[in-house]
Structures are given as C-alpha cells and as structure tokens.
Nucleic acid binder design. Structure first.
Lengths: 348, 348
DNA sequence: CCTGAGCATTACATCGTTGGAATCTTCGCG
DNA sequence: CGCGAAGATTCCAACGATGTAATGCTCAGG
C-alpha cells in the first residue's frame, strides 16, 4: 500500500498536518522539522493522493482538451503541443472528442467539474459554441460557476477566453493571392450549407468572399463544395461530385481550389491526379493549416501557416489566468499567420 | 455548487446511501423508490464527484495512453479509438507522450500512481520497454505493485499484457508480395541501426529478411534507410540521401520501397514525384498501417491494414481484466492484418 | 520569575461517496 | 395472528489531504 501523510508523519514524529505544511510550503515550518519530514517523505517514496487532494480543495491537476475530430492530422499536431506544454505547467491532458455534436460540448462542460478536471480547452467546430456561451450566461444567473474554459477557434464573443487565427483575414489573403496569380474561378472545399455549418468554415468563406468582392469578381455558388467531415475521404468524394456535375453540365472546370484544411486538400489532389488533371498546370490547389504532410503532398502544398505550438501555449496561459482570476475580463488572442508558397499554385 | 448525493437524497426523501445504491445498481432498490431517486437525479442534474468516488474506492476513472509521437497520423487514429472506446467503459483518457526516451516511459509508470490513473497503456517505440518490465520485476520483489499496464506493440515478453499486430508475418507477406510481382531490389525505409533502434522496426525488418531468404534473395545493406523519426519529413530526407548516394556511386535504383509506416511512404512518394521517378511504373512503394491518408496518396498506397479500433478495444479489455485480476497470467493478443492492394505496386 | 507576543505544531472537521452492519418493512406461512 | 426470512433502507465510518482554530513553545522584556 502506498504511504500516506499519516505514515510519513508517524515516521517523522510529527502530525499529518505538519507533513502537509512541508509539502505545500505555505505555512512556515522550522528547518529542523522540515528536514526530518523531508527525509521521511523520501524514505517512504510518498506520492500524494490526487483524489483526496482534489476532493479537499477542488484541484486535480488535469485539464481537458476537447477537439472535434481526433483522427485528423491537425488535431494530432495540436494535441502533441498541448501535452508537451501542459506537462511543463504540471498539468496532465485529458483528451476528449466533441464530434460535431453541440450537446456533447455542453455535456463536456457540465461534467468537467466532476471529472477531475480543473479547466477545459474546447475547439468547437460548430457555432454551437454559443450554446456553451449561453450556458455560461445562464450559469452566472443561477450563481453557478462553470469550470474555466478557453476556446480554440473563433466563436461569437460571449465573454469566453479565446485563442485563434484570424481566419477571415487569412482566407482573404490566400484568395487574393490566387486572384493576383491570375485565377478567376476559385472553388472552395469545406464550405457550409444547411446540413453542415461550422464557425471556421463560415469565417474562411467570408474571407474568400471579401477577396472576390475586392477584386470585382462574383462568387459562383456552384463552386462551393460542402464536406460533412473535414477529412481527405469526404473532400475527395464531394469534390469528385463537383467535377462530375460540371462535366455533365458541360461547365468549365475551376482554375483553382481553396481547401479550408490541408487534410481536405490531400483528398482533392488525389482526385485530380486520378483524373489526369495536372496540379498546378491545369488547376491550382491551396490548403490551410500547414500540417506536416502538406510539404510532402504531390505537389507540395501552398497553404496558410501558423504556429500551433503558440496556440497551445496561449491557450494554456489563458486558462491558467482564468483559473487564478475567475472574474477577469475575457481575453481574445489572435495568433499570427502567413502564406507558405510551395508548388501547387501556378501563374495563369 | 453542484448537487451531491445528499441533495438528491433530500429531494427524493431517502438516505444518501439509497441514492448511491440506485446509481451503482449492485444493491437492489424497490422500483418505486428507484423512480423517485432517478427523477431527483435528473432534476438536479446530478453528476458524481469522481474525486470522492476515487478516494473512497481507489478508482479514478482515468487511464493514461502513452504514445511515442502524438503528432503522427497513426497516433491520432489510435487515440481517437481509445478515447471513444474508453468512454464507453466509463474511462477518460489521459494522453501522454513517451518520445523515444526509455526514461520517460519509466517516469510515466511511476507517475501513474500520482496522477489519478487507474492503468496505463503504453506504446513503446523502443525495446526499452524491457526497462519497464525490469521495473515490474523489481517492484514485485519490493512488494510494491506497479499500476496495471498493457503494452501496444511487440516487446520482449516479461509478463506484461500486450496487444499487437504480427509485424514479422505482415512484413514477410508484404515483401513476398513484392517479390512475387517481380521486384528484386527492395529498399526498406524505417530500419534500425546503432543510432536508432525500435522494436517495431526490428520485427518488420526481420519479416522482410525472412521473405528475401525464402525467395533465395540476399539483403543489400545499402538499401536499408534508417529514419530517426517516423515522419514524412525524416523519411523524405533520408530516402533522398539514399537516392543521391546511389546516383553518385552509379548504383542502380531499387525497384521497390517498403516503408515501415504509411507516414514515411508519403515522404518517399513525394521525393520520387519530385525527381520524376514514376510510381509504380519505375518503382513500387508500399507502406504499413493504412492510415486515412494512404488511400489518397498519389498513387493510392498499397499497405498493410489492421483494425485500429480492435487494437484499442483489445487493449482496454486487457487492461480492465488486469485491473480486476492483478495476478492473472499476462495475455498476448494478436490483431489480424491483411494486405490492401492499391495503385502503388506494378508487376515487373 | 512571570507575562505575552509571535511563531510552530496539533486536533478536529470536512470534502462526497460508498462498504458494512444494523435496522426497519414486507410478506409468506405455519 | 404471530414469526421469521428476505428484501429494502438507514446509520456510521472511512478513504487521504488540508483549512481553521486552538494549543504549545520559545524568548524578550519587565
């Protein structure tokens, strides 16, 4: 059986509370006593029981990271940074999948407190985040306090801390780049419609539209490809559908495809390769996220890069601050981005 | 403040223990009482406090999943299944990264006790797993009990539960397939050497060698590409090195490349595309793992498929069993695999 | 030598849940 | 109608750590 404070206390000839004082170091302990306790601690290889500590003072040392789809490359990279950086702060990461289910997100929030979690980092796909925000407001009214939450990604600002890339700006820049290089019919992959609606999608779409407008171009609704999941498979299948449709209708192909994630771009590149449509000669393709595979796509993918590690860092910092000061005003941290030019775009 | 069993009990007009009985369902409760309690439960949106429960019965409901590199696609897919399936069993997943550091693995094991973890699922890259095994043996001698551990992947059997694919057999089959289709000079990417040594690598190499021997071919050490990390980037760089070397030395190119993971195959495909070496016409490429991106590689990648979900399922089942019966003999579960034939292999 | 200030330590209660034992109900059967 | 068994419910204690309040100790100053 593992040693408890009692055992340590007995060995050191002091009371359990003194041992606790030594461990936590807030109450002063005489040097000589401290030494005795510390040696007993070492001798018994004492490890505090987090359940007990958690029960007593409500801190578990765990924080939850909830991502919409854990199997994407983007999630994996993000998760890695979170785990590494959380570790440095003495936190462990409890991984959760929110899916595309708003209810799941709410559930995560309400269960957080009980599931040994000190805080929550949420990456909502859906605008449904507002559901959580409403919860937040409602809880405030009830005098209940939700666990500290930081949102990764853009949501309606309902007084919740958030960390994100400026999606509309990035999408605008990327679209503008395509326009500058002579593209006129730019399809998007990852758009929203009645069936599928995500905050990220809406914001990137908005940036795309802004760039078109700026250039005096009009959006072609037919070139909006909606993918129910942001995976290569879904993107490939939906994008194939677009090509089939254009072919049957005798419509011209787009001259560029702006995929809202690199993962989807991989699917699109595959479809194009299979159909003998050359990238970038016949059609340009760009992505978003700069996942590890992007540089090794065929051809290497032009995309939007941002530092995922600093997202994790900023989110953890914000969470720590929120835990320390529950009533501080909500922060909104924007992570810088840049276009990475590789081989998937040609000048027309 | 969250509702406790006391609150629920008061509302339902019963004792806290009865509420507990309803929740846990081991002690019988009269139907009418149960109903009253359940309605109170729902009304107060009761959620058990895991800290208290953990303190009382020594279970935290958390298990740790430690993977060598969280940023790989393979890890992501695995993590997803673990999170989903663990959830079904009422467990939350605490994610950890073991890196390629044996000490880190040992640390994870010892930290498990501290960090509210009921068990540990480890995917060791290195044979260093034996370090943990030694810990295990040592701990036994000391009368200390390590937390329940299940290993994903193949390690020296030191009495630890393991779940894995039969790597040597799969590698043998894949190599044999390449030989049957007329390939004679098969490079491998992901081999081991003095600097980098991993259990998985060694076992797949062994299978490759066995197939060559069976076919009366001899291994060419020059065609063994060692990658310090199993990422597209590392594979691309090391494989490029091989091609450069062969070119300078005037050696002939291999006619096939067996990458020990799909991630590395993506890097290899990129390098070949960039150099104008056509796949599969000039060179065949195969992978291992069947990650989601494999089917969308260019060309679609022939690889070894196995059900990652059933790995997660088997590991969780084994862990549950181990927790229930700490002294049961160690199990060794082999997950079936199969070759998936796509477009990256041509008959010669 | 006594007193009181100030610091160090201890006793006790408590967090929420659940085993175990004790108590209370209900119901069948003699 | 009474008794006992089975079933349902309650009471109490304990899991381990720690905040709070009370106690003990040391030492300076009168």
């Amino acid at each position: 059986m593992r040693a408890t404070v009692r055992d340590v206390a007995k060995l050191a000839g002091v009371s359990p509370k003194t041992v606790s004082n030594v461990i936590n170091g807030v109450v002063p302990v005489r040097a000589e006593t401290r030494e005795r306790v510390e040696s007993a601690l070492a001798q018994l290889d004492y490890v505090p029981n987090m359940s007990a500590r958690g029960l007593r003072n409500g801190r578990s040392g765990n924080i939850a990271l909830a991502l919409p789809d854990l199997s994407t490359a983007y999630s994996a990279e993000l998760a890695r940074h979170f785990v590494e950086l959380a570790h440095e702060r003495g936190w462990a990461i409890q991984l959760e999948q929110s899916g595309n289910d708003p209810h799941r997100e709410v559930e995560l929030v309400s269960r957080a407190r009980t599931h040994l979690v000190d805080g929550l980092i949420l990456n909502p796909t859906l605008l449904s985040m507002s559901v959580v925000a409403q919860q937040n407001a409602q809880a405030d009214l009830d005098g209940v306090r939700l666990p500290p939450i930081v949102v990764i990604g853009e949501v309606e600002p309902y007084g919740i801390d958030q960390v994100h890339v400026d999606s509309p700006a990035a999408a605008r820049e990327m679209t503008a780049h395509l326009i500058e290089t002579g593209h006129r019919r730019i399809a998007i992959v990852g758009g929203s419609d009645d069936r599928f609606r995500s905050a990220t999608s809406l914001l990137r779409h908005e940036g795309y539209r802004a760039a078109l407008t700026e250039a005096g171009l009009t959006e072609e609704p037919a070139l909006n490809v909606v993918a129910p999941e942001w995976t290569p498979a879904a993107a490939a299948s939906e994008f194939s559908g677009l090509l089939d449709h254009l072919e049957n209708a005798g419509g011209a192909l787009p001259d560029a495809v702006f995929c809202f994630t690199d993962s989807m771009a991989l699917g699109v590149l595959h479809v194009l390769a299979k159909r003998g449509i050359r990238v970038p000669d016949d059609m340009s393709v760009v992505g978003f996220d700069d996942i590890g595979e992007a540089a090794f796509a065929i051809p290497a993918l032009t995309t939007v890069r941002f530092d995922k590690r600093s997202i994790a860092d900023a989110a953890l910092t914000a969470l720590a601050k929120r835990i320390a000061e529950p009533d501080a005003p909500a922060s909104d941290i924007v992570i810088p981005h840049e276009l990475v030019h590789r081989d998937s775009v040609a000048r027309r």
